[in-house]
């Protein structure tokens, strides 16, 4: 199972900082996400482009985690040489994360937006 099966993501940018929200399709999965999608895992996933640290903010009331990746955008949208200078694609890349198997979760969250 991948993070893709449990949550959706949106990416924003502020200067050289990338921001990725991870939002559970089912708010009941929040604790599972909070346990397995840590700042350290996100930092490791983006190690190739991250030049700073990752801060995680928790929003249990929304079933969401907000990741702030400092110095992840090669200077930010106004000077980055990247094809995607905003880093808009990074949220989808984060959804690649492998998650520990949970039979119940796999059955419940096989696909569509249930919220």
């Amino acid at each position: 199972m991948r993070l893709l099966d449990l949550a959706h993501a949106r990416t924003g940018d502020k200067g050289d900082t990338s921001q990725i929200s991870i939002i559970a399709y089912d708010e009941g999965d929040y604790a599972f996400l909070a346990e397995h999608v840590t700042a350290a895992r996100v930092a490791a996933h983006f190690a190739a482009i991250l030049r700073g640290t990752v801060t995680r903010y928790e929003l249990p009331g929304l079933g969401a985690l907000n990741f702030v990746l400092h110095h992840a955008l090669a200077g930010g949208v106004t000077r980055s040489l990247r094809l995607d200078p905003h880093g808009k694609c990074l949220g989808a890349v984060l959804l690649e994360l492998e998650m520990p198997g949970r039979q119940a979760a796999a059955e419940h969250h096989g696909g569509n937006d249930r919220t």
């Binding site: 959706h8 924003g12 502020k14 921001q19 929200s21 903010y57 907000n66």
Partner: peptide, 11 residues
């Protein structure tokens, strides 16, 4: 939810 958190650092 996606738009609320869009470009937000510390909520």
């Amino acid at each position: 939810k996606e738009q609320l958190l869009y470009e937000l650092l510390d909520p």
